[in-house]
Simulated assay, not measured.
Amino acid sequence: MERYLALQKILETGGFTKAAKAMGYSQSSISQMIASLENELGIKLLTRSKGGAHLTIEGERIYPDIEKLLASSQAVKRKAADIRGLNDDVIRIGTISSITCHWMPQLIQGFQKQYPNVQFVFQQGDYSLIPEWIRSGKVDCGFISPVACGELQYDLVKSGEMLAVLPEKHPLASADRVSLEDLAQEPFLELEEGSYSEIMEAFKKAGLTPKVKYRLHDDYAIMTMVEAGLGVSVLAKLILDRTSFRNVCLPLNPPVSRTLAIAYVDKEELPLADKLFIKYLLDHKEDLP
């Protein structure tokens, strides 16, 4: 590659002597580089005159490809420099509790095998707070429903089922599925998700108004209250996996799902560490529970 750089520098400076000085070589070394390159390619690249060094006709034909090769080489070096610069980078992510508990450990473990020194900072919020944090720069990116993204850019990640959550001894606990109509008749514990709620939207589309008894921001608090017999709820299947609450979780009729996206203001403006994490996330999303 140094020989191509020497050729470029000769054309930039107009001569062998100036190119040698700029690159820190002797003039004879630069001359040997060009002679070696011409021998390898089998064509004469340069002519010398009192006015300086110029491309031959053959050189003019091949030089655009040499410029592309040099540009690609520089891009690779810049990318390597960026990656080496990840040592102290921090990725700031807005999350919801189910993602924090069930996706992030797996994602961090895999990502840090490639970039061991990158650190993560989480801000746990909802579909109103997280978009605000992204816009204000408090976080770089965040997991939210695409419906809550507004003008933010996003990549879809994954959809997951939502389940009815009932006390063990509830009359509906023995059913195969639970209808929204049945849930609308029960004291309902709503997960406060900010500007958008998948289950409340499902009730609205069905023309139903649930009897909301409590609104809470924490999934686990809702599971505790359902276990105590204070009402029923609907939560994402993801958060209901690997819990030990004495509740019954059943599919809904009709089914209700939750779709999550990773959102940001402008992907091109994100720090390199965030771009690499988002790529890793999207490449491995099928492995997520």
Rank of each mutant, 00 (worst) to 15 (best):
278 I>D: 12
175 A>C: 11
283 D>S: 02
207 G>C: 00
269 E>M: 15
27 Q>S: 15
76 V>Q: 14
161 E>N: 12
186 E>Y: 14
216 L>N: 08
53 A>P: 12
125 G>A: 03
239 I>A: 15
265 V>P: 01
86 L>G: 04
219 D>R: 11
34 I>A: 08
153 Q>A: 12
232 V>Q: 03
225 M>P: 10
146 P>Q: 03
97 S>D: 12
224 T>V: 09
134 I>H: 05
24 G>A: 06
170 H>S: 04
10 I>L: 10
139 V>K: 10
204 K>W: 04
128 S>A: 11
2 E>N: 11
220 Y>E: 12
84 R>C: 10
210 P>E: 09
226 V>F: 02
82 D>Y: 13
117 N>H: 08
225 M>D: 02
17 T>Q: 15
157 V>K: 00
139 V>H: 11
185 Q>C: 06
190 E>Y: 09
204 K>E: 09
138 K>R: 15
4 Y>C: 03
111 F>T: 12
155 D>H: 14
229 G>N: 03
110 G>K: 03
94 G>W: 01
73 S>Y: 12
93 I>Y: 11
18 K>F: 09
112 Q>E: 10
234 V>N: 01
236 A>T: 14
106 Q>I: 12
204 K>R: 06
193 E>P: 04
276 L>W: 04
13 T>Q: 12
163 L>D: 02
237 K>N: 06
280 Y>D: 12
161 E>V: 04
17 T>P: 06
228 A>E: 07
148 A>S: 13
140 D>A: 09
109 Q>A: 07
270 L>F: 05
33 M>S: 14
47 T>Y: 15
268 E>C: 10
99 I>H: 13
61 R>Y: 12
280 Y>T: 02
275 K>I: 11
262 I>A: 01
2 E>W: 07
92 R>L: 05
181 E>L: 04
121 V>N: 06
273 A>F: 07
122 F>S: 11
252 L>G: 02
148 A>W: 01
157 V>W: 07
248 V>L: 00
20 A>C: 13
244 S>M: 08
194 G>C: 05
240 L>M: 03
11 L>Y: 13
17 T>E: 15
75 A>S: 11
83 I>G: 07
232 V>D: 02
87 N>G: 15
162 M>D: 07
239 I>Q: 13
123 Q>F: 15
149 C>M: 03
47 T>Q: 14
30 I>M: 13
19 A>C: 13
211 K>E: 05
126 D>A: 03
218 D>I: 10
101 C>R: 10
144 I>L: 11
136 S>D: 08
207 G>W: 08
178 V>E: 02
169 K>G: 13
50 K>D: 12
115 Y>I: 02
282 L>W: 13
10 I>P: 11
239 I>S: 12
168 E>T: 14
195 S>K: 15
100 T>K: 05
254 P>C: 02
166 L>Y: 01
192 E>S: 13
49 S>L: 06
264 Y>C: 00
103 W>L: 01
180 L>S: 08
27 Q>W: 08
51 G>A: 14
104 M>W: 02
165 V>Y: 07
135 R>Y: 02
180 L>C: 06
63 Y>V: 07
77 K>S: 08
157 V>D: 00
273 A>W: 03
